[in-house]
Design a protein around this nucleic acid. Structure first.
Length: 262
DNA sequence: ATGGTCGTTTCACGA
């Protein structure tokens, strides 16, 4: 089974690339973030005609998430227990919503996550980010013993190696000790970063700002992750970042991450 | 310290 995650930065503007990506890499399950669309804006007939089912959650234009699967899409859940707004997709959580959607696809529980950005360390959104992560961790602890993939845009660079120049992030979110501790908490609980071993150092970057030719100069960040529970991690045979999708006209600012499961 | 470039329900704001 081939699983992928991709922050597409607007699904409507990227739908052609998404369809071509699925076909080119023969992807079975794709988790999407920043769909920037409401349900009524997503007919997605192309995906359906390709044999994929789609589960989407997103009520505002910014932080929608989706799971696209051709190996089954069952037990869809929007959010996780105790998440702000859980159980009511129309409810607006405090500060600024950030969604998660879970589905069981081919026997694997896949969670597409858009972790709150945090904006600035003195912004209420930063507090919301840490709280959101704590709630996710509390829920994810119960999923350790079954094949679970926590995938998506974590908006955290866990180590200095995951940013092009740590000096430029001295006062920025994404690299602060509390954020890194929150990420580490999932590893402490048994989740495994299944992609890192396959893409050392700067090869693991998944995000490059649109401006200042950051992609062309490979001044990127590694902030998109596939964390696998032990039963899932044991099945991973390979992984890669598809940089081709970050190149050229009409690219998202994130590249897809692809993982193969035995 | 600033600004650069994308996206969106765009003359503003989030990433």
């Amino acid at each position: 089974m081939r699983l992928a995650t991709w922050n597409v930065n607007s699904l409507r503007s990227r739908i052609g690339r998404v369809e071509a990506f699925l076909e080119r890499h023969d992807v079975d399950v794709l988790a999407l973030q920043e769909t920037k669309a409401r349900e009524d804006q997503l007919p997605l007939m192309g995906l359906q005609s390709m044999g994929y089912e789609v589960a989407h959650a997103g009520t505002n234009q910014w932080n929608g998430v989706a799971v696209v699967s051709r190996v089954g899409l069952e037990d869809v859940e929007v959010g996780f227990p105790d998440m702000p707004g859980w159980g009511d997709p129309a409810a607006a959580p405090p500060v600024m919503e950030s969604r998660a959607i879970g589905a069981t696809c081919g026997g694997v529980r896949v969670w597409s996550l858009y972790v709150p950005n945090g904006r600035k360390v003195d912004d209420p959104h930063y507090v919301y980010k840490l709280d959101w992560l704590a709630r996710l961790r509390a829920a994810a602890g119960a999923w350790c013993d079954v094949p679970t993939a926590l995938v998506g845009d974590w908006n955290i660079a866990p180590t200095d190696e995951d940013v092009f120049d740590i000096a430029q992030f001295a006062k920025s979110t994404h690299v602060t000790p509390p954020e890194r501790a929150a990420f580490q908490g999932f590893l402490d609980d048994g989740y495994v970063d299944v992609v890192r071993p396959h893409v050392p150092g700067a090869d693991g970057y998944t995000y490059w700002d649109y401006y200042r030719q950051r992609f062309e100069r490979n001044r990127g960040m590694r902030i998109d992750f596939v964390l696998g529970s032990p039963p899932l991690a044991a099945r991973v045979t390979s992984a890669f970042v598809d940089r081709d999708e970050r190149a050229g006209q009409g690219a998202s600012d994130h590249a897809p991450v692809v993982v193969d499961l035995a």
